[in-house]
Amino acid sequence: MKTESRLEKVLASGALAVTSEVGPPRGALPEKVRQKATLIKDHVDGINVTDNQTAMVRMSSWAAGVIIKQMGLDPILQMVTRDRNRLAMQSDIIGAYSMGINTMMCLSGDHVKFGDHANANGVFDIDSVQLVQTVRRMRDEGKFQGGADIDTPPKMFIGAAANPFADPFELRVMRLAKKIKAGADFIQTQCIFNLDKFEKYMEMMCDRGLDQQVHLLAGITPMKSVGMARYMKNKVPGMDVPDDVIKRMAGVSKEEQPEEGIRIAIESIQRLKEVKGVHGFHIMAIEWEEKVPQIVEKAGLFPRPVL
């Protein structure tokens, strides 16, 4: 084991892992964090805590992560390179690790243009691949990015994101390989709606033997309505929602659409469980955390392994 991470242990055991996420509140509301975490705590192995997602200011991911840690749960600290330079990121990593956080996700982050501080300057001192590399060297070599030794290095289990659907498709597996080379231990993917395309991606990944080098968790998002499906198809950059999924959502009454969205999510998990290289699922139920237990249970992923 490289770390004390619960997620690492579950993945090492060969079981399919389950993670989900909590978006911190836009205010000093620790209770909100606890509420959201409580909804999913028995059904996941790790809880991603998003970092100013969609470039909107929220409670910092490490502070919300500490709240979750204090509940005896396992936060996965998300960190975007948009808001901090390498000094700030490394100090936050040490700080988070000192508070018991041992798993993290390295991301570039949405452009500030999309958020409520569009006039801010994006930092992007380093990119997500370089952040993975930095965290890995901190852990394995005990070195800061600047080269100095760390007295008691943080031992983080390192995650990175992959979007199998963004352009250009042929580059996506190479990009994954690059993140693995940089030191990613696990990967969480973008929401998967186009299962055929995703399976093709996994095939390309396995052909290169990358499934032996990294744990990939497939991203699942239940859709609440056909409106949300259309929005994701047309408005969210790099999202691939096939027409037949939209047709299926539109084929049922408005009241039944949430249920249909959950059914699609469950069916997707059941199909992807069989795909070589898929080592677990990352369920992103956007402002719909209460549905995570139901999805996990119906997909046959419950109970979670006890370590």
Binding site: T81, R82, S108, G109, D110, H111, K113, F114, G122, F124, D127, S128, V129, Q130, A161, A162, N163, A166, D167, P168, L171, R175, K178, A182, Q190, P237, G238
Partner: peptide, 26 residues
């Protein structure tokens, strides 16, 4: 690159264009 990524592209590319605008090439 809108995020001056040295190991891009990020996940926001669509049809060869940047996530910030359909008028900006990735």
């Amino acid at each position: 690159c809108s995020k001056h990524l040295l190991n891009g592209p990020c996940g926001g590319t669509s049809y060869g264009m940047c996530e910030i605008s359909p008028d900006v090439e990735c």
